[in-house]
């Protein structure tokens, strides 16, 4: 890994400008959301775990889709991100296990995806590409110099979103 690589843990968000790679490993039912403003070469990657922040005092804003996206948008906007040219891509939301006779189990990925899409629509961001659902974990990378988003999964070819 190059020096400027940034690793995003579960329930976290990182952003940078100019060059470097932001990466988050093994998204299961979690969702990775990248926002990239090509005019500034400003890019951020958010890794959320659950749909909504129930306790408004919970300090872990990036753990939840609603509070995480709002905070990400606020931060990036403060750094000059222009909504109209921002490219948004999402990946993850897999259903890792299904238990027969319990259809609700493991639907958290689907609920995460629905919430992410809802918040993005409310904030008037268009999703330009997505790799969501299925039953496999994904690693997501954003190259901040180019805006390229790469999805890596075991036993599948690399995918450019």
């Amino acid at each position: 890994m190059a020096e400027k690589d940034l690793k995003v843990g579960i329930g976290d968000m990182k952003f940078t400008r100019g060059n470097g790679v932001i990466i988050t490993y093994a998204l299961g039912s979690c969702i990775g959301i990248t926002m990239y403003d090509p005019g500034l070469k400003l890019g951020g990657l958010l890794h959320i775990m659950l749909p909504s922040r129930v306790d408004p005092k919970d300090p872990k804003v990036f753990k939840y889709a609603d509070s995480g996206l709002n905070e990400m948008i606020r931060k990036l906007t403060a750094f000059g991100m222009v909504k109209s040219r921002t490219v948004v891509k999402i990946a993850g939301g897999a259903k890792m296990f299904s238990i027969s006779g319990n259809a609700d189990f493991g639907n958290i990925g689907q609920r995460n995806a629905a919430m992410v899409k809802k918040i993005l629509a409310e904030q008037h961001f268009r999703i330009s590409a997505e790799d969501v659902g299925g039953s496999h974990a994904r690693t997501m990378l954003l190259n901040v110099a180019t805006g390229d988003v790469v999805i890596r999964s075991a036993g599948r070819p690399e995918k450019h979103l």
Binding site: A26, G28, M96, A154
Partner: peptide, 11 residues
């Protein structure tokens, strides 16, 4: 499932 360890533990 057969999957990435990191992904499995997020469940």
């Amino acid at each position: 499932t057969v999957n990435m360890l990191g992904g499995i533990l997020t469940v």
